[in-house]
Amino acid sequence: MESIVVATGNPHKVKELIPLLQPIARNFHLQTDFFCDEAIEDGDTYLENALKKARHASAKTGLPAIADDSGLSIDALNGEPGIYSARYADKSGNSKPTEAENRQMVLQALQGLPFEQRKAHYYCAVVLVRHPKDPAPIIGMGRWNGEILMEERTAYGVGYDSIFWDRDRFRVAADIPLEVKNEISARAQATKSVVQQWLQDKALRG
């Protein structure tokens, strides 16, 4: 592809996504370069919301578009916060809480629960559409397993990274370097799957 629009204005997502997407396009544009209104994320799954965002961005720009939707799922909370990860602490439905407020809400919900019962998973769906009505979008899914700590380990990190423990690397996600995170995160897994499928499709088409 000559150009593709990335359906986000989130700089943290951009840092993760664009290096991974280099094999499929020459030029990358953020949706905020073209428009400000965001797609309505009223789906019941990460995949539904990602697809809504990708189609919205493609319709607005006339370009192929790629979008993702992700969140944290905690077994002991029946999958919460899930698709509501970015607004978990919002009980009114009228405001967007800070990331710190969301993390505190999770820690409060798990209060008193031992570490071995704090299994959690980052999930991500990435969708690429060639045009707004693409009947066969390319879909990638990713999952990163870990546990939720008893308290925050660092004063930095995006989302829930400062309380998400990667047991394999014995580190909190916030302390994992970006180059490593771009190999193991749910978003990285899903994006790489989309890129691989795109390249395979391109080879078949000649």
Rank of each mutant, 00 (worst) to 15 (best):
P177Q: 10
L51W: 04
Q197L: 09
N78P: 01
D33L: 08
L107G: 08
D134S: 00
R153K: 15
P81I: 01
P97Q: 12
I24Q: 01
H29L: 08
V106G: 05
Q189H: 00
P135Q: 04
I18H: 03
K60D: 08
Q200S: 12
V126D: 06
Y160F: 15
R153L: 13
P132S: 03
V129S: 03
I18N: 02
G159W: 05
G82Y: 00
V158W: 10
S193M: 12
R153T: 14
V14K: 07
D134R: 04
G93Q: 07
V127K: 06
A136F: 11
A203G: 01
E80W: 00
E183V: 11
F34L: 10
P137V: 02
Y160P: 04
R143E: 15
D161Y: 04
Q117W: 06
M105S: 14
V5Q: 02
R205H: 11
A186E: 05
V129K: 03
Y122C: 05
A190W: 02
L21M: 05
L30N: 05
G43P: 01
D168Q: 15
P23S: 11
M1C: 12
E80I: 02
A120F: 06
R187M: 08
Q196R: 09
P132Q: 07
F170T: 14
A155K: 15
V5G: 07
L77Y: 07
D68S: 10
N94I: 11
L199H: 03
T191M: 03
Y88D: 03
V5D: 07
L47E: 13
K133H: 10
V180F: 11
T98A: 13
L17R: 06
K181Q: 04
R118F: 06
R87K: 12
Y84N: 10
N102R: 07
P19C: 06
I148V: 14
Q200A: 15
A109H: 02
K202F: 13
E2N: 15
Q200D: 14
Q197H: 00
A7K: 00
L110E: 03
M1P: 10
V127T: 01
R171K: 13
D168K: 12
E151W: 07
D134Y: 02
P97I: 13
R169N: 13
A190T: 01
A203Q: 10
G157P: 04
L20W: 05
L21I: 09
E48C: 04
R205I: 09
H131F: 14
T32V: 11
A188F: 06
P135D: 09
G142Q: 01
V172W: 09
E99H: 07
R103M: 09
R167I: 07
K60F: 09
G79P: 00
K60G: 13
A203P: 02
A120D: 03
I18E: 06
K119Y: 07
D161E: 13
S193I: 13
K60A: 15
K202R: 14
R169V: 06
L110Q: 04
D69A: 05
A89G: 10
K52N: 08
R143Q: 14
M105L: 07
S95H: 13
R167D: 13
R143A: 11
D37W: 12
I184H: 12
G62A: 09
L20V: 11
Y84G: 05
V126W: 01
D168L: 15
A57I: 08
C124Y: 00
Q108A: 14
A50D: 08
R103Q: 13
E16I: 04
L17N: 05
S193T: 12
